[in-house]
């Protein structure tokens, strides 16, 4: 069983949903990024999404755009992010790691070699934002051969006619983008989520995680109860960004501040 499947199964047995965190790799530098990844599971993150920096993140809001610019400024690359995951994996054999990013850096790396190397580094799943099911042939066979889950986004605009096609192309879990918009710009209402989650459930047995616009412990708790997981990204990136010095460098308290916020989110997801 993959780490992702094992994690969701264990949480189901525990009777709660997952807290999925998103941070951009190398934001604001490699060492801080690694310290954050190492601290996240203990702070209560169940699955880790690691953003791969890209110059043109067209589905991301200003916070994550700036995170990418900070990371690129310190020399982040896709090989560098894989090395970061390898370093994390050396000390943690169970927490699932999902790389989230855009297709061009993967193309530049070489799709075949990337999938092999990512799996070897300890990556469990991929979210490639700009490869929709229509273009699945680009990366699906290679990801499957390497044992990587290909997690797809389902959006409010994904209608019932299209939903089965998107879900058929998904493995690991379903990432429900709860708003029509870019990351971190607004939040879905509980009512719209209560309608959306059963709509997806009708078509799949995969776990469903809700993301884009979840900021507070209360929202995370609600989403994790309604679905199988809550993804929090921008709110953590904002905390990280606010902790940096004038030159955008980490301060001694940066890691602690982000992990403290993760603890609060994890508490809400655990119903505490």
């Amino acid at each position: 069983m993959s780490r992702i499947a094992a994690k969701f199964a264990a949480l189901k047995a525990e009777g709660r949903g997952a807290l999925v965190t998103y941070l951009q790799g190398f934001d604001p530098d490699r060492e801080t990024s690694l310290a954050l990844l190492r601290g996240l599971p203990e702070a209560g993150a169940d699955l880790l999404e690691v953003g791969v920096p890209f110059t043109d993140p067209m589905a991301d809001g200003p916070s994550i755009q700036r995170a990418a610019q900070r990371a690129l400024k310190v020399g982040a690359t896709l090989p560098g992010v894989l090395e970061l995951v390898r370093a994390f994996r050396a000390g943690d054999g169970t927490t699932p790691v999902i790389l989230m990013g855009y297709y061009n850096p993967i193309l530049a790396y070489g799709v075949d070699r990337f999938c092999t190397d990512a799996a070897a580094a300890g990556v469990d799943g991929l979210i490639v934002v700009d490869v929709p099911p229509e273009e699945a042939g680009e990366i699906e066979p290679q990801a499957r051969a390497a044992g990587l889950d290909l997690i797809r986004l389902v959006a409010p605009t994904t209608d019932d006619a299209r939903l089965p096609r998107v879900l058929a192309a998904t493995s690991g879990f379903v990432y429900y983008v709860s708003i029509t918009g870019i990351t971190g710009t607004r939040s879905a209402t509980a009512a719209s989520l209560e309608e959306a989650v059963p709509r997806i459930r009708k078509h799949t047995d995969l776990p469903i995680a809700i993301g884009f616009g979840i900021r507070t412990p209360q929202q995370a708790g609600e989403a994790a109860r309604l679905a199988d997981g809550a993804v929090v990204g921008t709110a953590l990136v904002d905390t990280l960004a606010a902790s940096l010095d004038e030159e955008g460098r980490a301060r001694p308290e940066t890691v602690g501040l982000v992990l403290e916020q993760v603890r609060a989110l994890a508490g809400a997801v655990r119903g505490r």
């Binding site: 067209m58 797809r152 605009t157 983008v177």
Partner: peptide
């Protein structure tokens, strides 16, 4: 060519 866009845009 192709259609390399996020799912939110794909239906549109």
């Amino acid at each position: 060519g192709g259609r390399f866009v996020a799912e939110t845009l794909m239906p549109l």
